[in-house]
């Protein structure tokens, strides 16, 4: 299962980076979203995948017995998803406003803030 997820993570990174190198700002935001998902899945996979063993104490147990699923990566991902959602919402509003102001979605045409004079 780890191998499958490793390929999924790799694919998401590749797709995200490819989109980020396009000139259209819409694609850049989509690329950013994919990068975020890739990082989340990486976190999940690195936390070791354990199926069918939730970290719950049964009656009579005093401590968890191995193997059990580690809840921390999931807690981290949850936090990261919420943050990512907020930031993507802001980024979407930002590109809409930028498009309104500049009448273009081509990054190569956005040079006003980067000229040397």
């Amino acid at each position: 299962m780890e191998v499958v997820l490793a390929f999924v993570v790799g694919g998401l990174y590749a797709a995200g980076l490819y989109l980020m190198m396009r000139r259209s700002i819409v694609k850049i935001i989509l690329g950013l979203a994919l990068l975020g998902h890739a990082a989340n899945l990486l976190l999940f996979t690195m936390g070791r995948l354990t199926r069918g063993h939730p970290p719950v104490l049964h009656e009579g147990d005093t401590q968890l017995l191995h193997p059990f699923a580690d809840p921390i990566p999931e807690a981290l991902i949850l936090t990261a998803i919420v943050i990512g959602f907020g930031i993507q919402a802001f980024a979407t509003a930002l590109i809409r406003r930028s498009h309104e102001m500049m009448q273009t979605d081509d990054l190569d045409k956005m040079r006003a803030s980067d000229s040397s004079d």
Binding site: M20, I25, I28, L32, L35, G36, A38, A39, N40, L42, L43, F44, T45, M46, G47, P73, L76, A80, I87, F90, A91, L94, I95, R97, S98, M101, M102, L107, M110, R111, A112, S113, D114
Partner: peptide, 25 residues
Amino acid sequence: TQLEGTLKYVTLNLISSALFLAAIG
């Protein structure tokens, strides 16, 4: 110019955050 600058700033800083998160993982 502000919006343009913000777009570049947002994009690169979000890449940095994604890498940071991956590194933490």
